[in-house]
Design a protein around this nucleic acid. Structure first.
Lengths: 342, 342
DNA sequence: TTGTACGCGTTATCAT
DNA sequence: ATGATAACGCGTACAA
């Protein structure tokens, strides 16, 4: 079971007939150790291929120099971009990234959190699963002094650190664009009712229309469970109405893909009979002819990076008052931006 | 610097006025400990929220229950699928996944390997960077008894564990399909010369044509540095020749995207004037009208999963003879398969 | 059935 | 300038 022994400072000490403390200090170039001794230690260390045993150090220091990242999945472009941001930032601090995908399964999420906890990660960055409705397991971590920074999919709680993206700015830009282009019947495909993100989109949509004095038509708002079938259904519902919308804002890019496919199937020409605006920004859009006229960019890389930055500021801050680390600076909201595709 | 102290078995021992060993055994439900004692220990442990300190255990056991994963990037769909396979399998063994992206930068690759080593991961799964030409840093790990399983992008060495995908089966299927459909002038866009993958594709291409008695035209083989510009250039070179090919096999999906865009720009109709076959299989193809007629599927998820399985078989195997763990079973090659898109 | 003592590799503290 | 020793938290061989 036990793995082979690797060279330790003891070994070096024995060979040089000095004490382990001398070796330890020499290796850290402590000024109190004589030049020659220091040199000899380094030389032997080199020769026998000594590497400090981090597990021992971590154990002693009660730190792991590892941050846990828990997110729904890596297949979505959004999250793989986010983790790049996280990893890049963590690398600058010589931290490692322990990865877990919840796959939007609350049970899996809980299990992963559990292993992260027992592995004593120094902190966590979390984007919660779609179906999570209780946050007890996150509270748990607080007891163990493991700070969490949530990003993008954040729980509805007060005292948390988070990074998110404000959809309003981008969505209003998009609405204005559509209205300027003469669209008056603008549809909205939101996600499942229980998702905050769905409610948000709906509210901003309504607000935006009001600002421009456009009469709200409840029939132009439909929701989808986000499966392919439901996306198709939602689109069909919108587009086969008597007074069909000439533009549709979709919950995200994956919905947009299905919606565009469905619109084509219904014989409509994209960007002529009907055009789309979508949240997030698949890098692949530029290769597609039938694409939304605009995306609402939510900066996944930037979000990941910022979340990590916040996590480190908490980690490096006073541990003494770690009950209340959630200051305004630890709650960051980026503004989304509309990006034109044509 | 030091983090707050968490409950330990000492604490429990003190409260119950028993020895730490009793507590330790009770927590493991050791049969030698009396029922009441065991119960009392569990109760207190529960109350004060005791969690075994894994870092201490790992330190003692010289194991970390963590595998390191080093791959070029997570933006490519191929790798994010692969890591899902890895993570899923690792989870079944209660192992964690430490992640590192080389971004195809050999220096970064080296650094990541270094941190993985000092963090004493139990094993590694690696897909090497595009530009790596020396494998010393991998040899290093062997000294520290950290087994490596390579996948997909594997070094040209004998004694290694690996999982890869044999392109031949899929590519021959694709060639045959094209030939059956009447294509005789079939172009090939390979990658940079120094990549093994490029040579492979070239060889199989030539072999496939020979088998069907089709005269090889060297002009139909071009290589690209895989940047967007080079992809466009390579495509242009093929398609603007006097006797242009009616079908093109591209190095991968990203090349295909650029090639298709370029073909359109040249006024050609995809799948009529010219059609494409590509390696890998972007899930998004189905949403695109202008897509390759077929993909050569390389099963990233399966590769990741299998690589992890092999890693565990090595980890669980005899440590005694760890010089030569590379047995035939540890060198797995999947057959690629052609998948039609229409 | 329970307790004592030791070791894992390192560093910090207190001597010398 | 260097050495001896304790401590981090846990598991376990050996004693009682």
């Amino acid at each position: 079971m036990q793995r082979e022994k690797l060279p330790t400072i003891k070994e070096i000490a024995k060979r040089l007939k000095v004490s382990t403390s001398t070796v330890s200090r020499a290796l850290h170039n402590h000024p109190s150790i004589g030049y020659t001794t220091t040199m000899r230690v380094h030389k032997i260390a080199q020769e026998i291929g000594y590497e400090p045993n981090k597990t021992a150090i971590l154990f002693k220091q009660r730190k792991t120099f590892t941050i846990g990242v828990l997110l729904p999945n890596l297949s979505e472009d959004f999250f793989s971009a986010a983790i790049s941001g996280i990893e890049d930032f963590a690398a600058t601090k010589n931290y490692n990234v322990l990865l877990g995908q919840s796959l939007d399964d609350p049970e899996r999420e809980k299990r992963i959190l559990e292993t992260m906890k027992t592995h004593r990660v120094d902190g966590m960055i979390v984007s919660i699963s779609k179906n999570t409705d209780n946050y007890e397991h996150f509270e748990q971590l607080k007891k163990y002094h493991i700070p969490i920074v949530f990003f993008d999919r954040i729980p509805e709680k007060e005292a948390i650190n988070y990074v998110a993206c404000n959809l309003e700015s981008g969505m209003l830009q998009a609405l204005n664009l559509l209205i300027e282009q003469g669209h008056t019947r603008i549809g909205l495909i939101t996600g499942p009712e229980q998702l905050i993100a769905s409610a948000q989109r709906r509210e901003i949509y309504i607000k935006g229309l009001q600002e421009k004095n456009i009469q709200l038509d409840e029939k132009l708002i439909v929701s989808s469970g986000l499966s392919k079938e439901e996306n198709h259904k939602a689109t069909k519902k919108l587009l086969s109405a008597k007074k069909r919308p000439t533009a549709i804002i979709t919950f995200n890019d994956y919905v947009a893909l299905d919606a565009i496919a469905e619109a084509k199937k219904l014989g409509l020409t994209i960007n002529k009979d009907v055009c789309f605006v979508s949240f997030a920004n698949l890098p692949i859009w530029e290769y597609m002819d039938s694409r939304p006229i605009a995306s609402i960019e939510q900066f996944p890389y930037k979000q990941g990076e910022k979340a990590t930055e916040i996590l480190f500021s908490v980690l490096e801050g006073d541990d003494s008052m770690d009950e209340e680390t959630e200051t305004p600076e630890n709650q960051v909201i980026f503004d989304s931006e509309m990006r034109l595709h044509f």
